[in-house]
């Protein structure tokens, strides 16, 4: 609304100025509009930002739009060459099929538990470890740091075989502990990258803040929980989000570790449903043609909870700034 009012005012002023033949004033007013006081508040800059946002956003949005429109298609729409983007009718049948077949709400609950518990423990443990690496000096620190990064760089495909044998020796296979225990001990999925993120974030916090707390008699653990953690809220959020998404989307490890147990991540359940589906209906049948659309519907249904989670957590990004309170540095 404000924008419209401002535009109307601008044109009114401009016509007045031009009628009065005050061209110098008009030119400066136009320049003020386009470039602004310091360029970042001008119209050119705003247009530039939105153009880039829209064009880059389009690249990411395109496959999702593709998934959404194609998931509504009926068999006729898929075969017909006239329908390319917009399906002839809003057909919820594909969604209903997936919802029924994979028992969506139950498996969603399973999937959330399977993702949230390891993600929470991974976040807590990697925050501790990241702080230890960032703030203290101890013997063999460099060696340990290199070992940590090494464990991340090694292709997981090759450590899979010994890992699997080790887990079966520990008797962890087939239970959720196969994910939680490593996460608690900071060895979860991509654990090293969480530690690295926390490490760099804690190093960005000015040291003087912690020193003053130390002078006031706070113990190291208290400094960590009361000062370092609240200042690193953005990093806590992204680490939690990443690990949640990773565990939620994980199919390879959970396929190996949770086989023969009742637990299943949502993508895994979807996969097994499609395997069944394609074994029932032979290649070339009408139902098989529909599978593409059903698949997209199923994928959208698995992605949807993550989008909601993100939409509600992203606002906390902004909350932790302006809390530092350090002056004169």
């Amino acid at each position: 609304m404000n924008m419209i009012r401002r535009t109307r005012h601008f044109f009114k002023d401009m016509t007045k100025l031009i009628k009065a033949k005050d061209y110098a004033q008009a030119r400066s007013k136009l320049k003020r509009l386009l470039v602004g006081m310091k360029f970042t508040d001008g119209l050119i800059y705003t247009l530039l930002i939105y153009t880039m946002l829209i064009s880059l956003g389009y690249i990411y949005l395109y496959p999702v739009l593709y998934m959404v429109t194609n998931s509504f298609m009926t068999v006729q729409d898929i075969i017909s060459s006239t329908v390319k983007w917009i399906p002839s009718s809003l057909n919820w049948e594909n969604y209903r099929l997936v919802l029924d077949q994979i028992n969506y709400f139950d498996s969603l609950k399973d999937g959330i538990i399977l993702a949230a518990l390891p993600a929470l423990s991974a976040t807590a443990s990697s925050a501790l470890v990241g702080y230890g690496f960032a703030r203290f000096d101890f013997p063999f620190k460099k060696v340990l740091f290199v070992l940590m990064i090494t464990s991340f760089i090694i292709p997981p495909q090759i450590t899979m075989l010994p890992t699997f044998r080790m887990y079966s020796n520990y008797g962890l296979l087939g239970s959720i502990w196969a994910f939680i225990l490593p996460a608690i001990l900071a060895q979860g999925l991509n654990g090293a990258i969480y530690i690295l993120i926390f490490y760099q974030f804690f190093r960005m916090i000015p040291k003087s803040l912690e020193e003053s707390a130390k002078l006031d008699g706070a113990s190291s653990f208290k400094i960590f929980t009361r000062i370092a953690l609240p200042l690193a809220i953005p990093s806590i959020i992204i680490v939690f989000l990443f690990s949640f998404v990773w565990y939620y989307n994980e199919t390879y490890l959970s396929g190996l570790f949770l086989r023969d147990s009742g637990l299943m991540t949502l993508p895994l359940r979807l996969q097994s449903f499609f395997n069944q589906y394609s074994s029932i209906y032979p290649e070339g049948s009408r139902a098989r043609e529909l599978m593409q659309a059903v698949k997209l519907a199923g994928n959208l249904l698995t992605l949807f909870p993550l989008l909601i989670l993100y939409f509600f957590t992203q606002r906390y990004f902004v909350e932790s700034i302006d809390r530092t309170g350090i002056t004169g540095e």
């Binding site: 443990s125 000096d137 001990l185 060895q187």
Partner: peptide, 15 residues
Amino acid sequence: AVLGLSFILIWIIGY
């Protein structure tokens, strides 16, 4: 050193 090691102790055990 002791404090630092106790912070990363869980990582050492886990590793």
